[in-house]
Nucleic acid binder design. Structure first.
Lengths: 329, 329
DNA sequence: CTGAATAAGGGAATCGATTCCACATTTGTG
DNA sequence: CACAAATGTGGAATCGATTCCCTTATTCAG
């Protein structure tokens, strides 16, 4: 391997000078600069990142913890971040927890050992253990998707989104509306969205049954099963169902169709997420589109600011959403 | 930051001994080991990866270059790799080229500078420039998806897959079958799949028109546009279309429906990829399922073998596929 | 009981950069 | 023209580990 010493020798200067040329610091004469550049060009020398990091304590790598690679949500978010980071020479180290809560903490530790400069966590829960780990983190952490005290975060207004969707369903004449959610440990997706649904239903004085609130685990199949349980346990016919995620809505949609029912005439279906599939099914799914790419961009910007020491204080950024009205309601 | 020296001092031994304890090498008495372990436990000391890498030239990170994060294909592949690498303490550094050919080469260089131990490239072309870059790579490269001379690779039998699908369409009574492909620089997806289609059509003595072969760029929209061009330019009615990817098939499917035609009675539609959406549209898309997770597993295994110096020679692994017959043909 | 083998542990070089400090040379100003 | 400031360059310490080599203590076979 070719090192800075080789370059220095070949160019007839000290390695100090070579370092100056590479990093554009200090005083270097044009003559010396040119000679060094030439040698670097000829040899194809590339500085060792490890040696560099060992001295500077910087890696220019941001670790990103995803709940699941390959969901529409993840990819949009990552694309947004990439845009910002690439422009300033940062790279992204992606890891996926596959929705395993414990792995969220594990990966947080692992990434710190890899000495990334910062970590962006797309969080699925707000457990104390997780919060503690973030607090003791040696590198700055930015969270997407959950509101956490004293941690800079980018969030969506899940409560408002769920409210708006529920209102639309009611406006369209649906009254007996069920809900498919997820575990409430996931504050944003599990609790806030459900609360939005419950509150609006109550405000309209609409009847609700325990059986109408089922939980899934984000998967399509779990949506299918939840819908099945709901219909079986309900005291009468439902005329609508609102799922906390598009994938679960898809499962419900599948079950309803399998029962020979017509969407939306017999039962309306709505989701959140604006997944790609949601456009193509028939009737197309009414859903809510979050600005995931924007969340990626914002989180990256916040990270960069924190890295430059601009903000010590926690910062919240709430992003917009918009309701995509299609044919399933 | 707490270093090996601090541990040595606190435990009353030399840093040589601390290193031995950490790495389980050389002779260390039980007494010394315990003392060191205790101090490490108390302090929460974690060795610096940079210092380590600087000496050992190993990082235990594998770089993975994806054409696109967040396609079903990518995620399945990565999941397969993760399974293997996690078990042996390797981490994965994901990067995405967003289908930009030039970035494939850029990222190849970038990852080498990051001194990853190896690179797995999910390739979309076989250009000489790319091949050259692989040849001069300082770290081993394993390729998925394209056959390359002298490079260990995991590939699918694209030709056979396309043949089988075309045969099925013909068997089902379709005769005037169009094809939506991609640029032939992508040897596997662009050339081989198309060749499979062309050969089978020819073997059956079926008529083909230039207008029946359109290209897209992997996107849904491009499939839509390709289908539109095809129908407009065709000398007579088509009764089938075979797209090289599910996403493009989806676009075609959308256009066909928009024209008020019935699938498969008026026109049959087939794709390759077994995307999630393909299950949910109506009629459900007949497609081919590749063993992407397996590709991830195999590529990871090959990488591990190469890293252990087991194989210097290139190695090809061809994976299976199976045709998922649904309602669109 | 002696000499070799084994066990235990430390000193110091090394990996490839960055950076502080000291020194030399050139330039500028009154 | 003298002296301060600006410019240019190198020596050497440093970052935090690993590892080669050497010394010392212990064990054991003959």
């Amino acid at each position: 391997m070719i090192t800075i010493n080789d370059i220095a020798k070949q160019a007839g200067v000290s390695r100090t000078t070579v370092s100056r040329v590479i990093n554009n610091t200090g005083y270097v004469s044009e003559k010396a600069r040119k000679r060094v550049m030439d040698v670097i060009g000829e040899t194809g020398y590339v500085p060792s990142q490890h040696a560099k990091s060992l001295r500077t304590k910087k890696t220019k790598i941001i670790g990103v913890i995803l709940p699941k690679i390959s969901t529409d949500t993840s990819s949009r978010t990552v694309n947004g971040m990439t845009e910002v980071f690439e422009a300033v020479g940062y790279q992204i180290l992606l890891t996926s927890t596959n929705l395993d809560k414990q792995k969220e903490i594990e990966h947080l530790k692992l990434l710190q050992n890899r000495q990334v400069d910062g970590i962006i966590l797309i969080a699925t829960n707000t457990s104390q253990e997780l919060l503690d780990e973030i607090k003791v983190s040696k590198v700055p952490v930015v969270v997407i998707g959950q509101e956490m005290a004293d941690v800079p975060s980018v969030i969506f207004d899940d409560y408002a989104a769920a409210r708006q969707m529920t209102q639309l369903m009611i406006k369209k004449g649906h009254r007996r509306i069920g809900y498919i959610g997820v575990d409430e440990e996931d504050r944003s997706v599990g609790m806030l969205r459900k609360q939005g649904y419950v509150d609006v239903m109550a405000e309209h004085g609409l009847h609700m049954e325990d059986a109408w609130m089922q939980n899934g685990d984000f998967s399509i199949d779990s949506g299918y099963e939840a819908m099945k349980r709901m219909m079986l346990a309900s005291s009468g016919d439902l005329d609508g169902v609102f799922a906390a995620t598009d994938r679960m809505a898809l499962g419900a949609w599948k079950y309803i169709k399998g029962q020979g029912l017509v969407i939306p005439d017999d039962i309306a279906v709505a989701g959140i997420g604006s997944s790609e599939t949601s456009r193509f099914i028939e009737p197309a799914l009414t859903t809510i589109e979050y600005e995931h790419a924007q969340a990626g961009v914002e989180s990256a910007r916040i990270m960069l600011q924190v890295l430059q020491g601009e903000k010590e204080i926690s910062d919240k950024k709430v992003l917009d959403f918009n309701l995509v009205e299609r044919d399933s309601i």
